[in-house]
């Protein structure tokens, strides 16, 4: 296509000067030939550059298929619906321990607290349920969401805090405590519902997704590792005493009771802990980068059922 266009351009240029004194001259033909080569080079460079840009541009659904295919090939014996159980889905010994732990799930107390808090009215008489679709029942799988009004991604914790502030209450710590209890109650009502994250037809939403993807694959911290460094190829392997969870479905069990913490924590608490483990200085809990990361990771897990609240070592 490029040579044809150039060829016609070349002849047009050449034929535009037939009456000129230089037209039949050797110098003129030489000049035309050199111009055509230069033009050819420029057009080729432009096309190569455009192709490279097209290859860099994210196609979320293509990304998701490749992402999930990677894990289905890596763990052919793990059922798709089991990926939300993280290390317990990919390591038999840990799964046995987990089954015993789940006889008395360590998140039960938080779950009870979450349900009680959910029912408690705000000072203005309104409830959390008034802020959410379907009164907050079975909606956890649709978070994080892109909010057109703000042009930013909103996590479930962000939506709960926005609800509180709009109703005259103080925001909660988005990492733990009552927030984790509330999200536990919301997650429980979504158990079995597959992640259904949407990226609306808005360039800002795609940009947020792209930045989340960049965060996931970028090496950070003094140890120079990315989220992908631990949760893609090495997933299922040991890192010291831990089994690395696959990135697919990694947020499906959130919030979690983590034995290492001795308490409940939200997705942001876990991501923040990961940052520290790479010796990167954690960002603020509601930092846009963390929200975008959650957006990307949750979108990658579309189709994986919610299993939260969960438990982890």
């Amino acid at each position: 296509m490029v040579p044809r266009n150039l060829k016609s351009a070349f002849y047009l240029v050449g034929e535009a000067r037939p009456g000129s004194a230089a037209a039949p001259g050797r110098a003129w033909r030489h000049w035309c030939s050199r111009s055509a080569i230069a033009l050819n080079l420029v057009c080729t460079l432009l096309l190569v550059s455009a192709a490279a840009k097209a290859a860099d541009k994210s196609e979320p659904e293509t990304d998701r298929k490749a992402f999930q295919a990677f894990f289905f090939a890596k763990f052919p014996h793990v059922a798709k619906d089991d990926f939300g159980n993280g290390p317990y889905a990919v390591n038999e010994a840990m799964r046995k321990q987990w089954k015993e732990i789940m006889e008395f799930p360590p998140y039960e107390i938080a779950l009870d607290e979450g349900h009680a808090e959910w029912e408690k009215p705000f000072a203005n008489g309104k409830h959390y349920a008034d802020c959410f679709d379907n009164k907050g029942e079975g909606v956890r799988q649709t978070y994080p969401r892109f909010v057109a009004e703000t042009g930013q991604v909103e996590t479930l914790e962000g939506a709960i805090n926005r609800c509180r502030v709009e109703n005259g209450e103080k925001p909660l710590d988005p990492m733990t405590g009552t927030m984790a209890s509330l999200t536990a109650a919301m997650a429980e009502s979504s158990r079995g519902k597959p992640f259904a994250i949407t990226i609306p037809d808005d360039p800002r939403a795609l940009a947020a997704y792209e930045r989340g993807k960049e965060f996931f694959y970028s090496r950070k911290g003094q140890l120079g590792v990315s989220c992908a460094s631990c949760h893609m190829s090495p997933a299922g392997e040991r890192m010291r005493g831990d089994i690395l969870a696959p990135a697919l479905g990694i947020l499906a069990a959130m919030p979690i009771y983590r034995s290492d913490w001795g308490s409940m924590g939200t997705s942001i608490r876990r991501i923040s802990t990961c940052s520290s483990q790479t010796r990167a200085l954690p960002l603020k809990a509601d930092d846009e980068d963390y929200r975008n990361l959650e957006y990307f990771l949750s979108y990658m897990s579309n189709g994986i059922p919610i299993v939260g609240p969960g438990t982890r070592p």
Partner: peptide, 21 residues
Amino acid sequence: QAKLSVEQSNEQKTVWRNAVI
């Protein structure tokens, strides 16, 4: 270390794409 961390961040702005599945 601070200079290295900024250098790392700048470098990752392009090379992260090499790791994408």
